[in-house]
Design a binder for these strands. Sequence first.
RNA 1: GGUCCCGUCGUCUAACGGCUAGGACGUCGCCCUUUCACGGCGGCAAUACGGGUUCGAUUCCCGUCGGGACUACCA
Length: 463
Amino acid sequence: MVRVRFAPSPTGSLHIGGARTALFNWLHAKSQGGHFILRIEDTDRERSTPESEADILEGLSWLGITWDEFYRQSDRIGIYREYLKKLIDDDKAYYCFCSKEDLEAERQALVAQGFPPKYSGRCRALSKEEVVKRLNENKEHVIRFKVPEREVVFKDLIRGQVKFDASLSGDVIIAKNLDQPLYNFAVTVDDFLMGITHVIRGEEHLSNTPKQILLAEAMGMNAPQFAHLPLILNTDRSKMSKRMSDVALHDYRNKGYLPQAIVNFISFLGWHPREDKDMMSLDQITSEFELNRVQKGGAIFNVDKLDWLNAHYINSLTPEELAGMAKPFMPEGYELTIAMAASVKGRIKTLAEIQGIVDLFFKLPAYDTELLKWKDMPLSQVTSNLESALTVLNKIGESDYNQANLEKVLSPLAPEGNRGELFWPLRVALSGSKASPGPFEIMEVLGKQESLSRIEKAITKAR
RNA sequence: GGUCCCGUCGUCUAACGGCUAGGACGUCGCCCUUUCACGGCGGCAAUACGGGUUCGAUUCCCGUCGGGACUACCA
């Protein structure tokens, strides 16, 4: 069975790139009836926070990404300790007592001579007795893996065959001490123990792969298959970053993007269905997802397209659904009614935009009298047109104040071929603005009393 | 600098070695229309470059150029 994992470190909010990695893992698993494992990689005690972990869990759930198993690396320190000891006992890893300062000097010297910086392996030569002695003296140390000096070749499911010369990397540090394992090591142990079949992650991890393969080999473990996803990019084609755009998933949630839109959008960053489509639900994507259709090149995060998708998803909501979802975006004390939601639905790209539009339902914005004029009609005509509308509107009962009915009774009053002479002043009278929903929609929302009072106000202004 | 990865319209992308290089976003124009928005129709716009291989390269190979990632006692 396919078993994948998403392994974020809780050192910040869930990043858009992380969300996409999680999604692709989930899609790969679910499209084949496999399991998705969520593993919190919090081995870095200083940088990991519970808030970050909460943000990650919340973000995934919001997108509809569910997990079948959950682990936290900080709960597994004992496990790593055993494997670390074994590696040392097998002489495949060793204690290193070099100071950071010495290492840095060594490194500088190599770089200055034009050599790639790489640990000399000095502490490999320490005798067992010497190591024990220094350990007993509580000397500062780390644990290094004896990296075999050879070429590592692996087949990446997206990129094909990839080769690295491991002899260039030197002996990597795999733990600060027996109780503080580091990334490459902990990942290797967990991927094996958790029966991970496919490691699907961002391209930034490509160069970690040979280390993990060698480590797995040293511990007698089978390595999983690897697939490295193309990066999500800033507009200048560098890796998407805070500096240039919002990167946290919750930023998009807070701005009023729908999870359907985000899922649809990020799925298409590096992946595309066989049959050309641009709007797909999570279920549809799941049934059509194929890892081997994933793109190799990075993809720029194009907000315009996201906006377009989001507008579509908002528009396809029922007014009831929209009214519910938009609640958190309304100004304090204002309630979004179903009628308002209906009139606003097709006009917004994000839920946050609802504020600006819905405003006119609660209070008439101040407007310039000239705005009431349609093209070059005189103000006197504005008044007379509004007055005749007023007479008709007065006769309609409160309960008949709905769009269809209003349009039916008002339409005959509008001059054929120049309907704007009635509808434009009417709409401005009701909305006080240049761009707004139509007059009938507004009247339905406002109700009889408020509608009439706004029209009367306009007549007074124009007189 | 070193290692690795990548390269189709501005952007996301499609095209088992066989089209006039297709779609979508954006943009521009037109239509609808009481403005805006929505919607409909249409236009502009790409295989980085140079060599091979082949009857035939966007596709395969090599080189050049360009971009990116990594280069921590972070993940």
